[in-house]
Design a protein around this nucleic acid. Sequence first.
DNA 1: TCTAATGTCTACTAATTCAATAAAGTATAT
DNA 2: ATATACTTTATTGAATTAGTAGACATTAGA
Lengths: 163, 163
Amino acid sequence: MHLTKKGEYALRALINLGIAKEVGREHVSVSELTGLSQLPLKYVEQILHQLRLAGYVDTRRGKYGGYFLCKPMSQIKIGEIVRLLDGPLAPISCASQTAYARCSCPDEAHCGLRMVMVDVRNAIANILDRYSLADIVEVTMRKMRRDKIPLPFSKPERAAGRA
Amino acid sequence: MHLTKKGEYALRALINLGIAKEVGREHVSVSELTGLSQLPLKYVEQILHQLRLAGYVDTRRGKYGGYFLCKPMSQIKIGEIVRLLDGPLAPISCASQTAYARCSCPDEAHCGLRMVMVDVRNAIANILDRYSLADIVEVTMRKMRRDKIPLPFSKPERAAGRA
DNA sequence: TCTAATGTCTACTAATTCAATAAAGTATAT
DNA sequence: ATATACTTTATTGAATTAGTAGACATTAGA
């Protein structure tokens, strides 16, 4: 029942990009994104690349470039991201809705294991397909404000005031 | 969010041992247990060994020997088994109740990812720690009877009537 | 125009986990 | 005795996970 680092890093990156957007930052470099939690830069880069191909983020290249969300946060469901990076939500293939495949039991209709795992997959999907990135970003920012934690990305990378 | 073959085989074996017990079979050999679904015998043997060390099953050795449940089915929760064979239920270590460990975020109290994953872990645990082997065996057997599917292990291995 | 910062893309690899196999040994019913 | 079955430890092959490396393209600003 495990989320891989890949899925984890993807979600962390998206959440941070979401906060950045809310705070008015146009885009964020990978190094800034990974710096907060000391994540492996090149690995996260790969993951962001994948998110870009899937249409969740886009980039601006060159100096002072970076990544940014290119889809409304409310339309990015956590479940989609987990499926994209880590595969189906169901613990066992025969319980998957989006990637069904037979498994080893001889008779699915009378398989107790499948029955339980279908329940589990539905419970997971009910959470992950309901929560959107917008929900998470909102709650996170609210908590940070309440506890007076400074929001990340608050000050633009290049002393924006000037000019 | 994946259950490994190890966890899967363990649960299948326990469910089958549960049915066997209900049907009056004293014990079942590994080959009989794996035969139903063509599972790898030696691998399942290892898993049963582990279940034995953990006190869920016991064995009778020698000819006509085999495995049997040595704990009331109602006291075997599915969650315990999954944890034993596959590790914590939580998708991410910082969301685990039984095996908590810090993860990469700098501030857990304000981590959106953790928040979601705690929900997911609770949803999973609510199912797997509530269902017992007895529940699953009961439902499975009821369905099989309803649909007139012959129950496995119905006839004892050696023509028991004699003697 | 030059340079530093940044994303792009492909290839490679190290580590870990998963899934299984092998084999020599022990116990027991008949 | 002997066939059947569990016991135990070692080994291995395959897949997945998690990352590294490096050459290249693009852009901002001095």
